[in-house]
Write a protein that binds this DNA or RNA. Sequence first.
DNA 1: CGCGAGCTTGAGCCCCATCAACGGGAGTGG
DNA 2: CCACTCCCGTTGATGGGGCTCAAGCTCGCG
Lengths: 232, 232
Amino acid sequence: MRLSDFPHIRELHLFKSMREDNFATLSQAAYLQTFPEQVQLITEGDRADFLFVVIEGCVELFATANGREATLAMVHPIGTFILAAVLKDAVNLMSARTTKKSRVLMIPAQDIRTAFETDEGFARALVVELADCYRSTIKEHKNLKLRTAVERLANRLLKYHADQGAHGRISLPHDKRTLAALLGMTPENLSRAFATLRQFGVHVDGATIELTDIKGLTGLAKPTPLIDDRTT
Amino acid sequence: MRLSDFPHIRELHLFKSMREDNFATLSQAAYLQTFPEQVQLITEGDRADFLFVVIEGCVELFATANGREATLAMVHPIGTFILAAVLKDAVNLMSARTTKKSRVLMIPAQDIRTAFETDEGFARALVVELADCYRSTIKEHKNLKLRTAVERLANRLLKYHADQGAHGRISLPHDKRTLAALLGMTPENLSRAFATLRQFGVHVDGATIELTDIKGLTGLAKPTPLIDDRTT
DNA sequence: CGCGAGCTTGAGCCCCATCAACGGGAGTGG
DNA sequence: CCACTCCCGTTGATGGGGCTCAAGCTCGCG
């Protein structure tokens, strides 16, 4: 892997407090690879052989059963996935595919586990990382159980709006069928949800959305830090 | 707290590898308390002041928003809850209430965090515990998104059946309105789901259920270790 | 015997999935 | 430059799963 990528990784909360020698070992064992879009990186049920770190691009985590498929999360740079499975030396509960051309760092699972056992700083960082992941999924669970599809969309738009500078205009980070899957609905229903939100100042033009009634939209969405805040 | 309760707690995976002195400190700071049923122990949004350990009875974790309520999990002995919030010194994402008379151990959050920072063995145990919690919620998420209400009930019955010795007869561990909430449906709908399952050999008599067609029920439920196994 | 809580059953409705058709933009090849 | 095709997104019609509201039922208990 290229040394030029080390600084970013090293600065990750997960690796920041790791001992230098352990990090060096990990670096040497890791693979940095570039994938085109729509490549499936892992399959649920398979043993977790690598910890993945998304350096560039975007990865979709999803699961399948009974002929149905559900998107569980999108991983953006710099983010990791299947950490829990790697630590437990267990099978993946989710599958993963790229949604765009992506650069991904793959760290052999055994090296992660060794570092966990020998590096106290790393073990502590893992606690924090896992706690964050855990709380994120709880929020997502609440989002799904306590809100309708239109409410989920409204909150998601407000989140994008805040992320992108709150200038009244946002651009969707995913195509609409992916966004629909992420929100737990069909593409058709997403269209209708957008139509419903028109009366709340949501105007769609392709991947660009204009928000002209933030107050009204917020009133509908009723965002709460207990679901929507990234880090609480 | 009573010394007689120590052995059970000490044997918990979470505390097993903790240093003796740290465990002693924790024990002295902890409160063992008994609550009647339907007592709310914590409220979402409040700061997490204690780590809770259910010694006896049962605790329901739930969340509220927009006038809706959703049950997220049931905690049975011996189980912990709001560990992640305690570690992060954050607010609770869930509320908790007893569903029956319960004995609960309450360990001050600050003591847990201190132990985390000073006790390497405890930190490692936390990683495993959090990874388990994390994977459990992912499974629950998949259960909800990938299955219909009837399928969720069928799988739940099969799980109880296995837990209780697979003798073709099970007794429901919760009353039906709680079970309905746990499965993400209304009590009315649970009734109808049971009626639907009659043709698959599910015969209801109060809290006792007789299963006369395990094979057929399994065919409908299509259980998978990637959702239903407690520890994979 | 009367009462209330928990459970069941029924009717109606809403949200959302499904199926089908259509429109438009991008890419391709003539 | 245009015709063709394919894919994405939209729109409409229909249906089903599940919720709501309301009534009836059963059983335990006073």
